[in-house]
Amino acid sequence: MRELVESPVFLVALTLAAYRLGCWVRDVTRGHALAQPVLVAIVVTGAAILALDVDAAVYADGVQVISFWLGAATVALAVPLHRQASRLRGFVVPMLVAVPLGVVTSVVSVVLLARWTGADEELARTLSPKAATTPVSIALSGTVGGIPSLTAVLTIAVGVLGAVAGPAVLSLARITDRRARGLALGGVSHGIGASRALAEDQTEGAFAGLSMGLTALTTSLLLPLLLVLLL
């Protein structure tokens, strides 16, 4: 029985079923902001592997067939962008200023806020790349002296936060332009924010994907330098 519970086929089935449940919850609540399939799936799957006493590393190994496709899905974000390419005109300069400024804001504020509220240096380093999309934040965390698997979890958390609260906060801040909303969501909540943006509007989703790419790039370039200045 143990082997079955720790086998990829069981763990993948569990994950897919939890995700289906998440989609169902989203549909019956008519897309309530809290009912993000990723959130429901993480809570249900996490509770299940805790109850079944499956080690997190065994789980991660077993569901690699799912995680693998994240790379191809990142490539796929070229498609909404391609559909919106004409809307890039007159928008390149604002984008190339706003997104790097967002990266600097994210890194500086997360490190300072963490230190001020009592985090040790390792935790601050672990938090620092959290705005970049998961594969990038994991790699960066290792190079700057953080704990990569914890960075992965925190990156997902900030993504889920964006999917749940992002559109509402943007509306409160009176940011109504679909392109600006997309850039902001993709810049702080990467692919998970982009998936919510795509559900809201094609343009918003396309710019979120673009912003996610730019954020990943800029964070990779600036993070080591910013940490030298901050820590």
Binding site: Q36, I42, A60, I66, V153, I156
Partner: peptide, 12 residues
Amino acid sequence: LQLLFVPAGVGV
């Protein structure tokens, strides 16, 4: 897309 982030999130 959200499905693909579940494995990393369960690491929590």
